[in-house]
């Protein structure tokens, strides 16, 4: 009896160790490309291109960060980072607020034309962005917004289809009994939104913040089209400026700046990470 227990214990332990080893090794393989890029910021071109396997830089060339930070034509990366923060921060904030409102309407309120607007929203998700680029640009230009960050931020105040859809999914998981109880207590539809739905949407909101932030942070096409002074460029445009195929590329400096550009995304993620999964599953049920 005793021996058997030890055996099970041992077996359990072994399987636990195997489990952890597997997950760690596999996870390492998953993040290897990222590590390679990060350590690439401490190598020079020859070291990056010729020994693409090794992660450990032969010489720790911190100077890449210094040269990279200087940027182009007298404008440093400090400016580019500031611009990216402004655009991504505003856009994320706007997306959260507007998408939550729209999701509430589409998921909970039975108003006339709801189905049509829902279909319209699904359609916008499927629309290839490249094709409405030109007409959209012309509209913004008529409005005199080109050259500012308005075209990059404004659409987010009107809700983003992807996040509306996601929030609708989560809203439909919130029991209707809660609404009904609130109505009996004398709550209007408006206060149901602010008192019940919005707080319970928290996990979905956190997901939105993370995803929207890094989407906007990485966005290349939008800033390229709408910003027209190097002083207003975002980080993603600036990084692309390193790579021009007709001449030499300073990969070390490019990787150094790419590495820096990932830090805000990582921070946002680390900060909200614990809400991500735990929150999603508990809030809707337990209230």
């Amino acid at each position: 009896m005793e021996g058997k227990a030890v055996g099970i214990n041992f077996k359990n332990r072994a399987s636990k160790i195997i489990y952890h080893c597997f997950i760690i090794v596999f996870g390492f393989i998953m993040v290897y490309p990222v590590l390679w890029m990060i350590t690439g910021s401490l190598k020079n071109n020859a070291e990056i291109l010729n020994s693409s396997l090794s992660i450990i830089p032969p010489n720790w060339r911190w100077s890449n960060f210094v040269t990279g930070w200087k940027g182009f034509g007298g404008i440093g990366f400090a400016t580019y980072f500031k611009n990216s923060f402004l655009v991504s921060g505003l856009a994320t904030f706007a997306t959260v607020i507007s998408s939550a409102c729209v999701a509430y309407a589409l998921a909970r309120i039975k108003f006339r034309g709801r189905k049509i607007w829902f279909t319209a929203m699904l359609c916008t998700m499927m629309l290839p962005a490249q094709i409405i680029l030109i007409p959209q640009y012309i509209i913004y230009n008529r409005l005199g917004f080109v050259g500012s960050i308005i075209p990059l931020v404004l659409p987010h105040f009107f809700g983003q289809a992807f996040f509306i859809f996601q929030m609708m999914q989560f809203t439909s998981g919130i029991p209707r009994e809660l609404d009904e109880a609130a109505t009996i207590d004398g709550c209007s539809k408006y206060s149901i939104f602010t008192r019940i739905i919005l707080p319970l949407l928290k996990p979905s909101i956190v997901t939105t913040i993370i995803i929207q932030f890094y989407w906007k942070w990485d966005d290349f096409m939008g800033p390229l089209i709408y910003l027209n002074k190097p002083q207003t460029y975002t980080v993603s445009i600036a990084i692309k400026l390193f790579a021009d195929a007709s001449s030499t590329t300073d990969f070390g400096a490019m990787f150094a700046m790419s590495t820096l550009s990932l830090i805000p995304v990582f921070l946002i993620f680390l900060f909200f990470n614990k809400y991500l999964v735990e929150g999603i599953s508990t809030s809707g049920l337990k209230g």
């Binding site: 182009f72 640009y137 012309i138 096409m221 390229l224 027209n228 190097p230 400026l241 021009d244 007709s246």
Partner: peptide, 19 residues
């Protein structure tokens, strides 16, 4: 002034042409 890499330059130029 504005500066771009080659592809970016022409994408940008085309939108300016259109407007």
């Amino acid at each position: 002034y504005e500066f771009y890499d080659f592809d970016g330059y022409f994408t940008k130029l085309n939108t300016l042409v259109a407007s």
